[in-house]
């Protein structure tokens, strides 16, 4: 079981307290109706799925309950860093 550093609690906590929440930094468009089908498709379905450094969201659902962002290596499954929601991509 992995350990994850929660940027709100500022503690390493057991992975069982967390829930994965998909790729990070995919903001919901301010006016979805203005988007073409292709643009909406990109927002809805297209994900980076990289081999290596992945920006992703987690939620400390059984802790402080906050969503936050993380950079995790999808090969080694190691967390490089975590940061608060709303902070720029790192």
């Amino acid at each position: 079981m992995i350990l994850i550093h929660c940027p709100y609690c500022d503690e390493q906590r057991p992975g069982l307290e967390f829930a994965y929440a998909g790729e990070a930094h995919i903001a919901r468009p301010a006016d979805p109706s203005a988007l073409s089908d292709e643009e909406w498709e990109r927002f809805l379905f297209i994900r980076a799925n990289p081999r290596g450094r992945h920006h992703e969201r987690w939620r400390h659902i059984h802790g402080c309950a906050r969503f936050f962002n993380a950079v995790r290596d999808t090969v080694s499954d190691k967390f490089e860093l975590t940061y608060k929601a709303g902070e720029p991509r790192k």
């Binding site: 829930a19 929440a21 903001a27 919901r28 969201r57 939620r59 659902i61 309950a65 906050r66 969503f67 929601a85 709303g86």
Partner: peptide, 13 residues
């Protein structure tokens, strides 16, 4: 609840 929290915390803070 998780979905609503998600929108609230990350899309419409």
């Amino acid at each position: 609840l998780n979905m609503m929290e998600d929108y609230l915390q990350t899309e419409w803070p």
